[in-house]
Design a protein around this nucleic acid. Sequence first.
DNA 1: GAGAGTACGCACTTTTAAGTAAGGTACCCA
DNA 2: TGGGTACCTTACTTAAAAGTGCGTACTCTC
Lengths: 124, 124
Amino acid sequence: MKAAPLPPALADGVFPAGCPSRTVLDHVTSKWGVLLLVALSEGEQRWSDLRRRAEGISEKMLAQTLKTLERDGLVRRNARPVIPPRVDYSLTDRGYELSALLVPLVAWTFENAGDIIGGAEKAK
Amino acid sequence: MKAAPLPPALADGVFPAGCPSRTVLDHVTSKWGVLLLVALSEGEQRWSDLRRRAEGISEKMLAQTLKTLERDGLVRRNARPVIPPRVDYSLTDRGYELSALLVPLVAWTFENAGDIIGGAEKAK
DNA sequence: GAGAGTACGCACTTTTAAGTAAGGTACCCA
DNA sequence: TGGGTACCTTACTTAAAAGTGCGTACTCTC
């Protein structure tokens, strides 16, 4: 079995240390970051929806993660001046690009997690 | 722009809390996990190669991360009884599957990181 | 014979992410 | 008057991730 193709940017196979991509990768692959991005891939959703879908998230982490993703230009926040408050979150174009890559990853994880954790399976 | 397709497993849009996939996702999306898996997607490599390629990793984290990935059946360890010691690491079949999903993600991050971090760009 | 390379394990400390708990607003309903 | 809802913020604490430094056993080079 041979190698998957690496992009030209890292063709030398070295992942530079100071590089901004490290930061972005940390934001994106954070515990709740992945889940929220994938959840939002289905379309605009409000605070309380996200809270339900990312089961177990605290309000603090929800706010914090959303804020980070918004700063990174991946998530758009739309607060409407109505009572009771209503805030809709959605992905930006860039966020959609990202989520398209994250969804298969999360799906794969879902499908293989049982084997991986429970499994006394051989690595052949 | 409409939603990316979500797999049947999470069609309800809820990511259950106790689920083993959370654990696997944490392993895989850990700071060094991603980098090592992508590095190994190019084929078998030894300890010192990986140390070089995942720039900035400490020996402790290299050992620890590799051990976790090995336990998860994603990485295969091949220690040869020679002097000086030589240990080769490679991906299992399952690991290859995963890396095929991670490579585009990392590539995307590389290409967009500059805009995201440096950028005063609008989220349109 | 002094020093460097190889692939670690172990103990300790620091840093960071995440969790917990509480409060705040501005309304609406009973 | 007193909840209840929706969307947060702040302060404090804990748990997990990551970093630091040292030791090992052997061998090959200078």
